[in-house]
Design a protein around this nucleic acid. Structure first.
Lengths: 140, 140
DNA sequence: TAAAATAGGAGAATATATATCTTATTTTCA
DNA sequence: TGAAAATAAGATATATATTCTCCTATTTTA
């Protein structure tokens, strides 16, 4: 029921790139700034590239850069780039995952929840997130 | 990003008990009907008892029964009974989980999403779910 | 008091998440 | 043109969490 640490790194990574759109940034720098293991982050960045969220440049002076406007990158985009399509229950993405699904009363609920949840995630883009003031929320 | 199989069993288990509120049901029967391993299910039922979703009776003629009206048991109740408080990111439940949270622009988003998501789950109670017609949805 | 059920702890087996390492490829620039 | 600096990609190791089983204790019925 949680995003993985990989996804968390990916989000912070996109957040960092959002703050550095003026130039190309090396994995090493993101790794340092976002406290994420370099080679793991490199893998994650490859997924972001495949999802057309970032673009990469090889060789000396290489690195990464967002390939879209922060405003056009949503939380859902980044989560799906890393984890693939998301759903609360495997049967939503693959009916063969559960022999019951054709008669299961919960199945349609999962379908509906997935749609609603995806909508929630789509509402948050990285321009907005980067503009958010550091939290003054107190709980927990 | 998914509920665990344990949670899935728990939900199907409550769904089965919802259809048999007139009597006490043995683990063996639920296990058979819901295709869940018996001893695993026994553990899950203990969690449901602790959460005051089911009550148990020991000894010959023992078994389980819902301890509340199906209408008063929500999806959120069952998920939390099994998984504990849920949140998309560990930092929402435990700020020490991430050194960044006090300055992190994503943190408040997680907090908000958690609240919205919990609301979605609260909307579904087991009287409604049990009343749902078997899905005629076609995807996937 | 024997049989049938749940309670609870410990632990084994399996799967997934989290990294790391190595080699290949690309690009820059002296 | 070749050395250095960067990403790309595959293989593999390590850690953690999930899933499931087993054993013993306790409770209840007849």
């Amino acid at each position: 029921m949680q995003i993985t640490r990989e996804t968390d790194y990916a989000i912070r990574c996109v957040l960092y790139l959002t703050s550095r759109t003026d130039r190309v940034v090396m994995v090493d720098e993101i790794s340092r700034e976002m406290a994420a293991p370099k080679s793991f982050l490199a893998k994650i960045l490859q997924k972001l590239v495949k999802a057309d969220i970032a673009r990469s440049f090889r060789g000396v002076k290489g690195g990464f850069q967002l390939s879209r406007e922060p405003r056009d990158i949503t939380l859902l985009d980044v989560i799906e780039a890393v984890e693939g399509s998301i759903a609360l229950n495997a049967c939503v993405l693959d009916r063969t995952a559960c022999g019951f699904s054709s008669t299961c009363a919960v199945h349609p609920i999962w379908i509906g929840l997935r749609a609603e949840f995806n909508e929630l995630l789509k509402k948050h883009n990285f321009a907005d997130i980067a503009g958010t003031k550091p939290s003054s929320d107190r709980e927990p």
